[in-house]
């Protein structure tokens, strides 16, 4: 079953630190408990998103890899 989400964010093609900056910008505008689905192609986005959620307290619900595209689902704290 795929994760349900409230908003999508396309960070494909962007390199560090842009996926994190855009994710932060998007999540700031969302409500607590809502889920952001973010797409990235930067392999560095995996450890960065894990670190970002660990530090900010937002919850990483899932992260998947489909070809070159990484998909992250983050629940706003």
């Amino acid at each position: 079953m795929s994760q349900s989400f409230d908003q999508e964010l396309d960070c494909k093609g962007l390199s560090c630190p842009m996926p994190i900056l855009k994710t932060k910008k998007a999540i700031d505008k969302m409500e607590s408990g809502q889920v952001l689905k973010m797409f990235a192609t930067d392999p560095g986005a995996i450890p960065d998103m894990e670190a970002w959620t660990a530090k900010t307290g937002h919850e990483m619900l899932s992260h998947e890899k489909d070809g070159d595209v990484f998909t992250f689902c983050v629940k706003k704290k």
Binding site: C16, P17, I20, L21, T23, K24, A51, W52, K55, T56
Partner: peptide
Amino acid sequence: LILGTAAVAMDM
């Protein structure tokens, strides 16, 4: 600039 923007994005 990379570390500064990343830091603030991490709520620091």
